[in-house]
Amino acid sequence: MSHPHASWEHRVKKPPVKKSRWIIAGLLAVVYIWAFSGVPLNGFKETALQVTKAIASGIFSPDWDYVYLPDGEDLLRGLLDTLAISILSTFISAVLCVPFAFWAASNMSEWGITSKTGKIILSVIRTFPEIVMAILFIKAVGPGSFAGVLALGLHSIGMLGKLFAEEIEQIDCGPTEALIATGANRIQILWYAVIPQVLPGFLSYTLYRFEINVRSATILGVIGAGGIGTPLIFALSTRNWDRVGIILLGIIIMITLIDLLSGAIRKKLV
């Protein structure tokens, strides 16, 4: 300390660590000890390595014959089914969510409570898992793609409604006020001042949700709601790894293509 060349560290003190940091760190440590101590590590099957190898070799030597079968279920039909489910469900939700979005947008209602309730409803819809919704719709309309369409269509309202509402909240008030000043009625204001401003955003979000719905639609088949998931689960349970490989390849290629296409369109839109 008495050294003439005392380093700068003695003069510039580090900022003190806040007490709340220690509390947070302690809490996190407790949570992590609880979480990691409960992981069962003895659950490995002896066949794990073998099955992994089989799936890997299945992906590299896929069952090409399955791509198109003249009669019955094949890969292309399964993927087409998945695509149809996602297109239709995205359209349904994009239409149905518009009233919810105007309900939830804080600049469209005079009382804050209106927008709050709308937001809560959208949040509850969003939280309800699509796959559980599909189970319920299967009970109503029977197993098949239609149940998947309804489930995804209803579930997507939650997210699309929220995104649409945020888009509406960002609009410029100028055109609306100008139209009010010229004596336009509410429908005219909506049509000429609000819609032109929000339409590109709406379309872009719809496409984004379409990308998500394609992913969701591939797994709906797991519970019998149509799409490529059904043959995949069947192939998995019958240990037909070559078929698992071709279906996985098909899903990956389809989703990549759709992401590219939708991304390109979205870039043009906004």
Partner: peptide
């Protein structure tokens, strides 16, 4: 590109049932 539930189905086939 692979949905989480699909990954889970694959891993169940590999490791067997359970949280792992």
């Amino acid at each position: 590109t692979i949905p989480d539930l699909l990954l889970a189905a694959l891993f169940v086939a590999i490791f067997g049932l359970g949280p792992l």
